[in-house]
Design a protein around this nucleic acid. Structure first.
Length: 458
RNA sequence: GUGGUUGUAGCUCAGCUGGUUAGAGCGCUGGAUUGUGGUUCCAGAGGUCGCCGGUUCGAACCCGGUCUUCCACCCCA
């Protein structure tokens, strides 16, 4: 019985046009990664479950795709657990591998395992799919690509500045104007929490703060109260909600607000330095914006936090993010190794470029020359012509069958081929071919011996 | 994971309070045009109405389940 085929929720097929567009983005990112001195690595699509568990918080653990043990996976389950239907207890008995959830944790694992072979500071990039058992939405998939660049073993703030430049270079190359790179600092956040006396509630405090642009000040206050943050703490944090002006103004306000928190002040100074370096280096299209409500990846970020958001008017969450993590490798037994990294969300960047019509037209021009097929003897001559064109690096093809000219031309038209070559009986006799420019409709005859003439016209 | 939403031709979508043979535009195939596409005209093909079950004399339409899409929450690229 034939059944309708389907693919799992949140996954997609990519047709030739989409692959061309995805490769265009990937190649742009890759090119900049390499000019910035990053080296490529790849890691397995699945890891040992224990490598991933506990690294992304409770929510993250839930979203990790677990792989069922092979063979008789119930073999190791004792009857009591089986009867009890306790998923949490059952889990470790039936699964010990899981699909990669991001590229950062596998990278940390990689660094620890290969520490003796690596030159520090080590700059790596990695472009691979990751998987999350999330509920799909627009721009949110269960299988998607991340493009990560990280440096480990370098403390300097220059690294952060480099990543700002890298974001700018990539988005500028893609023609994406109006991308805002939001910046914050983990120490600023913890400093604030400490000053207002909500130090133990740091996570709840920042998670609530992060929703500012979504639910507004009132909503944030309501959520903070709900999480048990005191009224006076919230009152003290009020100035944060209305932090205004340019980045320098905000820095000044934070300096005053964070008097008395050494860590907080250190965070502010780091941000100030980062702004200063960036100002002297200059930016092309990227806009830099200090945003104290930005609170991402708190499970491992310890310093600067980045988030790139789509240009205003495009309904898409963040299209990239990153930050500094002082001790990511610590959990794998390698202490005191500082890292900074950023990520580009390929799939979301795709959707944004598509919505804004920013993909170059030539991505659809997959064939430069199509040779019409007039029958056996003409086609043989045409094959020789096509072979020469291919050796010259031209994307050329011969229509495989002697179909009606109308059909062959229509095919060329749909494939957006700019030149159609005609090599029929007449041309064969005179040792020439006709090239038709499909845009202008003009035709020109060339000698088969003088291909260069045609190649120049291409 | 919670709540909601969507699904009709290859694509984008109509389809009235349930009523014969489910429509349009685009695309596709053939012809006008046996060495010329993109424009025009003519003709044609193409549908288990997401899937399973129920109500009914009768279901694309109502009910239940399920899958999928998108949205909000959670979280995130």
């Amino acid at each position: 019985m034939a059944q309708k085929p389907s693919i799992p929720k949140g996954t997609r097929d990519f047709s030739p046009g989409e692959v061309a567009r995805r490769n265009y983005i990937i190649n742009t990112i890759k090119q900049h990664f390499e000019t910035f001195g990053f080296l490529p690595i790849e890691t397995p699509s699945f890891e040992n479950l224990e490598t991933l568990l506990g690294k992304y918080g409770e929510e993250g653990d839930r979203l990790i795709f677990k792989i069922l043990n092979s063979g008789d996976f119930l073999d190791k389950v004792d009857p009591h657990t089986y009867q009890g239907k306790d998923s949490a207890a059952l889990l470790p008995m039936i699964t010990e591998k899981a699909l990669r959830y991001d590229l950062t944790v596998p990278f940390a694992r990689y660094v620890v395992m290969h520490q003796n072979e690596l030159q520090f500071p080590f700059k790596r990039y990695q472009i691979q799919p990751v998987w999350r058992a999330d509920k799909p939405q627009k721009g949110r998939f269960r299988e998607f690509f991340q493009c990560d660049a990280d440096v480990v073993g370098a403390q300097s703030l220059l690294q952060e500045a480099e990543f700002v430049q890298l974001y700018d270079a990539v988005f500028t190359s893609l023609g994406l104007k109006g991308v805002v790179l939001k910046l914050n600092h983990r120490k600023v956040l913890s400093g604030i929490a400490q000053i207002i006396g909500a130090g133990e509630k740091l996570i709840d405090f920042t998670v609530a703060l992060d929703k500012m642009d979504k639910i507004g000040q009132e909503g944030v206050v309501r959520e903070m109260k709900q999480k048990g943050i005191s009224e006076e703490a919230i009152a003290k944090a009020k100035p944060l909600f209305s932090l205004a002006g340019d980045n320098d103004d905000k820095i000044g306000q934070l300096r005053r607000l964070l008097q008395g928190s050494e860590a907080g002040l250190q965070g502010v100074e780091e941000l100030a330095t980062l702004f200063k370096i960036t100002e002297s280096l200059g930016l092309d299209e990227l806009q830099l914006q200090l945003d104290v409500t930005l609170a991402r990846g708190l499970n491992y970020y310890t310093g600067t936090i980045f988030e790139a958001s789509a240009p205003a008017g495009v309904a898409m969450g963040s299209i990239g993010g990153g930050g500094r993590y002082d001790d990511l490798t610590g959990i794998f037994g390698m202490q005191d190794l500082s890292g900074v990294g950023i990520s580009f969300g390929l799939d979301r960047i795709y959707l944004v470029l598509e919505e804004l019509g920013l993909f170059p037209e030539e991505l659809d021009r997959t064939l430069e020359v199509l040779c019409v097929n007039f029958g056996a003897s003409e086609a043989l001559a045409a094959s020789r012509l096509v072979k020469k064109l291919r050796m010259a690096g031209v994307r050329a093809d011969l229509y495989p069958s002697e179909a009606k000219l109308q059909k062959q031309f229509k095919y060329a038209n749909n494939r957006k081929v700019p030149f159609v070559l005609l090599l029929g009986e007449e041309e064969l006799a005179s040792g020439s071919f006709v090239a038709k420019d499909m845009v202008s409709g003009k035709q020109h005859t060339y000698s088969l011996d003088a291909l260069d003439e045609f190649l120049e016209a291409l």
